[in-house]
Computed example of a mutant assay.
Amino acid sequence: MAESQSQSLTTLAHIRNHAIKSRQLYESQMDLDASRTSARLEATIKELQDQIEQQQAALENLRAKFNGTNSSASLAFASSDPRQRLKQLRTLKRAYTSLKPTATFLPEKDSVLPTLLTTRSLQQNVQGTKDAISATESQLSTTSSLLRTEEQNLHDANLITTTITSRIAKLQIDHEEQSEKSPTQLANDLIAAKRAQKATYDEKIRLLGDDLQLFITEILSPMLAAEALGGPVVGDMLDVQDETLAAGFTKKGRAKSTSKAPSERSRQLKIDQIWGNNAAVDDAHITEAEAADQEMRSLIESLFATLVGPGGGKAYFEVERETAAVRFLVRAGVAKLHPREARKVRLVDFGAELDD
């Protein structure tokens, strides 16, 4: 009992001495002299080396005590023999008893070991803080991007909700108005709506027809005439002049020289030969492009008449011969030839699927 109290008093004395030394070190001014710092570092290193040597000596002492039967390997596991187990316990007790009064290692007053340990701890904390800042910035960027996406989705959802709400309100108003009308009034409104719709469609058809006629006259007819005269197919030569059509093309499809223009009579004979005697109207001479224009217009009118006529859009129109206009419509996917008769052609009924 007295021995235990003595050890406690010794440990308490060491703690008080360490507290006094730490307070003195804290209150004293730090020495910034480089030579003094080097000397303190060397002293600290020597102190640590001495401590290591002491620990190694203590370790060798313990190993010497545990040689033979009382080796560390034999003490690792409890023996099944009661006497041997008691011996192991006594050996462990002696080891703990010898280690208990050992004074705690405390650095000297001038030692820089606390400063080094503090510096290492601060460096670890600073590096950890930097890593945490980098990770937080990356997470913040990802979160900001996700937030912008969600805000855009919310904006779209609000617009959809507003549109659907207004549409529902309009439908409700229309339903209330319809429920208050008589069958005659409903029929008249339906007829008026269909007539207005038909008028709108007729106007769109007229505008599309005008655009088609303009396209044929100004753009398509010269290229059709060039293909009919043996030149390149439609689309290979975009800018075809009347002089080029009048001069004609070689057997290889190249434009002939326009330095010597053919006579008007030979030119009209060639036009009649290619486009037929219908190329002249009221004995007035027309150009190759005008003849191709008339042929395309006549072909489209005949195909439209066949499409809306009897046969439900399945009837074919029989042409006198395969012309550049027929080939162009087929290549464009607007018309299709009969699978067994090459001179029969019809327009593709794009509205048949909608009717079905």
Rank of each mutant, 00 (worst) to 15 (best):
M1F: 09
E3V: 09
E3P: 02
Q5W: 07
Q7I: 07
L12H: 05
N17Q: 12
I20D: 15
S22T: 12
E27L: 15
D33S: 14
A34T: 10
A34G: 02
A34F: 08
R36G: 15
E42C: 07
A43M: 11
L48Q: 14
D50E: 12
D50L: 09
D50W: 04
E53A: 14
Q56Y: 14
Q56A: 15
A58M: 12
L59A: 05
R63S: 14
K65R: 15
F66P: 00
F66H: 12
N70R: 06
N70G: 08
S74H: 03
A78T: 08
D81A: 10
P82H: 04
Q84P: 01
R90Y: 07
K100T: 10
P101H: 04
T104K: 14
L106K: 09
P107Q: 06
K109M: 11
S111Y: 01
S111N: 03
P114V: 05
R120V: 15
N125M: 12
G128Y: 02
D131E: 13
S141E: 15
T143V: 05
S144P: 00
L146R: 10
T149P: 01
T149L: 07
E150R: 12
E151S: 11
N153D: 10
H155W: 06
T163L: 12
S166L: 03
R167E: 02
K170G: 11
K170V: 13
E177P: 00
S179A: 11
K181T: 08
K181I: 05
S182Q: 00
T184A: 13
L186N: 01
N188Q: 14
N188G: 05
A196P: 01
A199E: 13
A199Q: 08
E203D: 11
Q213T: 09
F215A: 13
I219F: 07
S221P: 03
P222A: 04
L224P: 03
A225V: 01
E227D: 11
A228M: 01
V233Y: 02
V234K: 01
D236P: 01
E243K: 09
A246H: 04
G253L: 03
R254V: 07
R254E: 15
K256G: 02
S257M: 05
T258H: 04
S263D: 07
S263G: 13
R265I: 14
R265F: 15
S266W: 08
R267C: 10
R267A: 06
A280N: 12
H285K: 12
T287D: 07
A291L: 06
E295A: 06
M296Q: 00
I300C: 07
S302M: 02
F304A: 06
G309S: 10
G309D: 08
P310G: 10
G311I: 04
Y316C: 01
F317P: 02
F317M: 02
V319M: 08
V319W: 03
A324H: 01
A325L: 01
V326Y: 00
V334D: 02
V334H: 08
V334M: 07
V334T: 06
K336S: 04
P339T: 10
P339Q: 11
R340I: 08
D356F: 05
